[in-house]
Design a protein around this nucleic acid. Sequence first.
DNA 1: CAGGATTTGTTCGTATGTATA
DNA 2: TTATACATACGAACAAATCCT
Lengths: 251, 251
Amino acid sequence: MAPKHPSGSRGPATSSSEGVTLWRRIADDFEQAIVTGEYASGDRLPAETDIAAQFRVNRHTVRRALAELAERGIVKASRGSGTFVEGPKLAYPIGRRTRFSEIVGQAGLEVGGRLVAHETEPAKDSVARLLKIAVGDLVVRLDILRTAGRVPICAATSWLPAQTMADAAKVYRATRSITKTLAHFGISDYQRQETRITAALADSIDAKRLDIGWLQPVLVVESVDVTPAGQPVVTSRARFAADRLVLVVKN
Amino acid sequence: MAPKHPSGSRGPATSSSEGVTLWRRIADDFEQAIVTGEYASGDRLPAETDIAAQFRVNRHTVRRALAELAERGIVKASRGSGTFVEGPKLAYPIGRRTRFSEIVGQAGLEVGGRLVAHETEPAKDSVARLLKIAVGDLVVRLDILRTAGRVPICAATSWLPAQTMADAAKVYRATRSITKTLAHFGISDYQRQETRITAALADSIDAKRLDIGWLQPVLVVESVDVTPAGQPVVTSRARFAADRLVLVVKN
DNA sequence: CAGGATTTGTTCGTATGTATA
DNA sequence: TTATACATACGAACAAATCCT
């Protein structure tokens, strides 16, 4: 019943902060409280009605403030249960040598990769162009669900040229690693040529696989990996649960 | 009434494509038709019921196929009017010298930047850490709406240290450029130190400013720019309309 | 402006085949 | 083998947005 934060530590008209909208003041207030540790990861914030009473504002104003924090990934509202402080996101560096297993492994998490589907199919226009093969040449498509410490992070679709790696699916299922699969076919090193990033809403299948809400945003990362000699070896289209990680581009 | 594509060019059981699900065959079929130019940018696809009749499948199966194309940004459905072929996205390279005006200008589009709000405020924890100043030190916050050829691309919030750039808002309003604003304060060159990318759903304010639907995904790009000497000069949090561009990381 | 036709969005239900445990 | 879960596919009805007369 009693709100968690010390009474009087926050509230209406605490200081001269004119010229700032009410909701922004409330949002800033809670951000400060979260950053300073007053609320820890996973903590539940007071109910919106309680916050509204405390600040003596309409509940809508509180909702506007919480929406701001939610959009920035600081809190997350769950209908029927409350608003909770989000944990820090997994930092996913993007660079010349992007390897899922290394990134997640360095974060001290158990790496998982499950092959949920695979198919040998003729290359469509976009895949053929990226792999520098002819349209219609056979490619192996691997649909992989990657997890970090039991939490699904990314649903990825990878295409490899079937001419040189016909049973890539079998090898991946055994090794559970793209890097090891490529190594099996004699490709001991490769690097990222280009990465294209956009965002979309999760479709029903990805939402279920990633265990996220059905209209949650996903980061769509399209990439091409090449050998040191510049030969394309795999192109991928990965959908990341946007609320679980942040892509980091170092310069 | 007559479907646009030549009768017989697509339909059920056109060839030996066993082992592939119905919806994927339909999706591939339409992707091919779009890639080959049978449907141009902005064209409307036949109604779902018409496609279903043509392929002799249930409407759900068609919807599954179109959902696949929509998730990949190839088409976009609008309730009540139809499903339309999307135009190519603006490629937005991310690198050491990321400048909005240069990127958009090189694409042959007119660059726009409108200061929609500004405030001098004490730095919160996150901003202070990025700018390497003390919490509570004054910073200038600029809310900028950037457009490319009349189309809103990005809603950005930038923070600059007020100690050295107190009237940055006035200067920006005159120059309509962050680069020129920094130059006015003697910073002739700067470069991107780090870029963090995640995705979220647009809040009501950003949705209105970006002229996108209220629950559409936005790419959230947080960045820090520094002088060649390493002194942070501006940190930004930009929300991009994800359906209008793709971020490109070259390696 | 009204109202009907069109079109996509949503939610029930049913059935089948296939991996997985 | 059984049981469970999942993906595919079909059917019917309704809701909601848009377009057109």
